[in-house]
């Protein structure tokens, strides 16, 4: 099978064209006045930096980081015990429960956001059927609840897949060597699940940080995330052919890329073959 390595070549070309070149271009756009839709001469400039120092941008960055951190921490606190609990179940129940965790992901994400919007409106279907009212639309707590519900499975799966594969002999060995359950957990099980925790954290933190439809719908547009600014720079403001908005948007995207690059370094360190990613 070794002689089939040529099959990987077109993939390198494909990734260079669709992933590497645009990334380099994003850097050029961010640090110049190059017009994306009217390529021509350009000069390097740091003027686009000004977008980062705008109050609205800083606030959006702060919001993104704040909500993403809170969501990730809550997802971890709930997700780790759930993954541990599920991994200790009998094989049949375990398989069924994991499948049941995947099933809701097949519902359209925007429709699930719409459903949360319905739950949080003062007088909703919920009030009619269950007599309950959660008047939370526009509140921070509503955004956090919806985000946790949206991204929790992505924290559970990677941790679960590491715990499920954990060699039980190691646990027995720890016990034979005199460790109690508490010590076994914190000195054997927990460190060995580090790869899953890293993947889970990344898979919850990055999407919640870059969310833009969810904060807009549940937060009633009053809580701006970094994604909302990028959206307006790349989608709405393009309509009036204000070229500079793309360059400013690129600058903000570079800021986001710092986080993805960190994520990459962590994943390469903890999970070389990407086994916890799906």
């Amino acid at each position: 099978m070794k002689r089939l390595h040529g099959y990987a070549l077109p993939y390198i070309v494909w990734m260079i064209v669709l992933a590497l070149i645009p990334t380099l271009f994003l850097v050029v756009l961010a640090f110049s006045d190059l017009a994306l839709f009217n390529l021509g001469s350009f000069s390097l400039t740091l003027a686009n930096f000004s977008i980062i120092s705008l109050d609205t941008t800083l606030k959006a960055m702060g919001n993104s980081l704040k909500f993403a951190s809170i969501t990730t921490i809550i997802c971890f606190i709930i997700g780790y015990p759930v993954a541990l609990y599920l991994s200790n179940l009998k094989e049949k129940t375990r398989k069924i429960l994991i499948a049941l965790l995947i099933v809701p992901l097949w519902s359209n994400m925007l429709l699930r956001i719409t459903a949360w919007e319905k739950i949080f409106t003062p007088s909703s279907i919920f009030t009619d059927i269950f007599g309950l009212s959660f008047d939370l639309l526009g509140e921070d707590i509503a955004i956090i609840i919806a985000m946790v519900a949206m991204y929790l499975p992505f924290m559970i799966f990677p941790i679960f897949s590491v715990l499920e594969k954990l060699d039980t002999k190691l646990i027995e060995a720890a016990k034979d060597l005199g460790a109690n359950d508490f010590q076994t957990f914190f000195r054997v099980i927990f460190p060995l699940s580090a790869g899953g925790i890293v993947s889970g954290t990344i898979m919850t933190f990055l999407p919640s940080m870059t969310a833009f439809a969810l904060p807009q719908r549940i937060g009633l547009g009053s809580t701006t995330f970094i994604g909302n600014i990028i959206e307006s720079k790349f989608r709405t403001e393009i309509m009036d052919f204000n070229g500079i908005s793309i360059n400013q948007g690129s600058m903000i995207s570079l800021f986001l890329m710092l986080f993805s690059i960190t994520a990459f370094i962590l994943i390469v360190k903890f999970d070389k073959e990407g086994e916890t990613l799906i």
């Binding site: 669709l18 994003l26 990344i202 990055l206 999407p207 993805s260 990459f264 990407g274």
Partner: peptide, 21 residues
Amino acid sequence: VLNNIPIVNPDIVTGISLLIV
């Protein structure tokens, strides 16, 4: 690692990159 770029990258970054290409 190269393969994982689109998985780890936030969708919004992937979307913009493709828009640029």
